Simulated assay, not measured.
Amino acid sequence: METNPRGYGERCRLDTFYKTVLKHEAIDYIREMKRRASRETSLERLPQTMMDKLCSADDYPSDSYVFSYCGYDLPISSQQVADAFAGLPEQEQSI
């Protein structure tokens, strides 16, 4: 029986190649993570003014109270303001 079977050298070279490839993939991954960390900012660290620019709000017709006067629709989104407006006499509503 041979102590050094045929193909053993090829397997060692292939194993070394795979280990080298994996090592360089790990290096590339770490380098990419460092690059991202230097360019990206956490949302927690942004000031409120920047956060306000990033957000958006949907405006649905069912979220507001609509009053009609002189052919114009007046949408009012606050319930308290809508109640106060509805409580005014017609003459004061026209102002």
Rank of each mutant, 00 (worst) to 15 (best):
Q91Y: 15
G71C: 02
Y65M: 09
R11W: 06
C12W: 02
E40S: 07
D52H: 04
P47E: 02
K23M: 10
C12D: 00
I76A: 01
L14N: 07
L46W: 00
S62P: 01
D59Y: 15
A57W: 10
F17M: 05
S62Y: 12
D28Q: 08
N4K: 12
N4V: 15
C55Q: 14
E10H: 03
S78Y: 06
Y60Q: 09
S38D: 06
S62T: 03
E44C: 07
S42P: 03
E25C: 09
R35A: 10
G71F: 08
S78C: 13
S68E: 15
T20Y: 04
T16Q: 06
C12P: 00
P61R: 11
Y29M: 08
V66S: 07
E32Q: 08
I76L: 14
R11K: 03
G9W: 05
N4L: 15
V21Y: 03
E32F: 12
P61I: 11
D59A: 15
K53T: 01
S64F: 11
E25T: 04
R13Y: 02
E44L: 05
Y18D: 13
S68K: 12
I27V: 15
Q48G: 01
D63E: 06
A82H: 02
R13M: 02
P89S: 01
D59C: 14
V21T: 02
Q48R: 08
T41Y: 10
D15L: 07
A84C: 14
S64Q: 11
S42K: 03
E32S: 08
Q48T: 04
I27C: 11
R45S: 14
M50L: 12
L54R: 02
Y60S: 08
Y29E: 09
M1P: 05
S56L: 10
P89L: 06
Y65T: 13
Q93P: 03
R31W: 07
R31Y: 07
R45K: 13
K34S: 13
T3I: 12
R45C: 06
D83L: 03
M33P: 00
L88Q: 03
Y69N: 13
P75G: 09
R35V: 09
D15I: 09
R35Y: 11
N4C: 06
I76H: 04
E25R: 00
P5G: 05
T49W: 00
I95E: 01
D83T: 05
G9L: 01
D28L: 02
S42V: 00
R35S: 12
L54S: 05
K19P: 00
R39T: 08
